[in-house]
Write a protein that binds this DNA or RNA. Structure first.
Length: 103
DNA sequence: CACGTGACCGATT
DNA sequence: AAATCGGCCACGT
């Protein structure tokens, strides 16, 4: 039975706590997880989520409030956000002043 | 062990 | 405001 490292587990816990209708950034998740400079790793953890995970990964965006995924994945994340009331511009930008989650 | 890669970020042009 | 430049750190080859 392989164990996930504690960093990944903390990321899961933090992302799971983001309320519906809100978003936060990779960097913020990294800070809360105790590794302020590990924003890229947060992306890595989310990318490797098992299919069918209930974790609200779509509530994590980059520092500009933009969706970092590309192609069909971008559209999927946008749709997930729209369907819970987060407005996303045509270019995939979110008004962070309005939707940013504060821990 | 060296090097490339990436769902990133802050400071600096 | 937008592009560029280093730095960051876990992972694969």
């Amino acid at each position: 039975m392989e164990q996930e490292d504690s960093f990944a587990m903390r990321v899961w816990q933090i992302v799971a706590a983001i309320p519906e209708g809100c978003v936060t950034t990779y960097g913020e998740v990294a800070r809360l997880a105790g590794s302020p400079r590990a924003a890229r790793q947060v992306g890595g953890v989310l990318r490797r989520l098992p299919q069918g995970s209930t974790l609200p990964w779509h509530r994590v965006v980059n520092r500009h409030g933009g969706i970092s995924l590309t192609g069909p994945d971008l559209q999927r994340q946008r749709q997930a956000l729209l369907s819970e009331g987060v407005q996303v511009s045509g270019k995939g930008l979110i008004d962070m002043a309005r939707y940013r989650w504060r821990y």
